[in-house]
Amino acid sequence: MNKRYLLLAGIIIALGVGILFMPAKDTAKQPKPELLLAAIDDPSRFLSTDDITDRLVKKNPALILIDVRPESQFKAFSIPGAINIPSDSLLSASALEILNQKEMDKVFYSNADVTSDQAWIICKRLGLQRIYVMQGGVNRWFSTIVKAEKPAETATTKALELYQFRIAACQHFFGSPEMAAKTETVAAKKTVNVVKKSSGGKSGGGC
């Protein structure tokens, strides 16, 4: 009797070893729609423009800022330090090589939030880690950093500090105020529609 059980145990374990050597199915990696939905509901993927600017100024080595707009728009104006992966070439081999770097924070931005969020969902479905979206995109970056609004003198120290930071960052990117003004006009000209589309965009004094 005992011998028969040993034989049976041997058979099932041999079958188990067989399973062990079955090739992986690529479908297994994709998260289930429900898991994806839960991830979409989670707002922690959004990083603020100030957050990104701070990391850009400090030259944070773990940050890859990715512009998912078409190349023409990227060339017209882009956030200094960003690289361009147009959303239609997100799945190309060279793009995936960049996106697959596990130890890097990949932050997408577009004009507003829509295209960057779509890119984020695609990458989430690919099972990529450490992917984020810069909330508000170029439009908000422009209105908060380049055209930072001077707070009223009665504003809190925190608001004043944030303003100082934004001015400094702007100078860091575009050099002297005059040059910044020049860049700004060029940029503004070429991204007219960008500024118009801005949802939370406030117009105010320049750098």
Binding site: V17, I19, M22, L35
Partner: peptide, 21 residues
């Protein structure tokens, strides 16, 4: 806390074949 039709090995971060074995 709906995780949909989640598989146990997905939650454990394991390959399905390893879990089966």
């Amino acid at each position: 806390h709906n995780l949909g039709g989640a598989k146990i090995y997905e939650l454990l971060g394991m390959r399905d074949t390893v879990f089966a074995f």
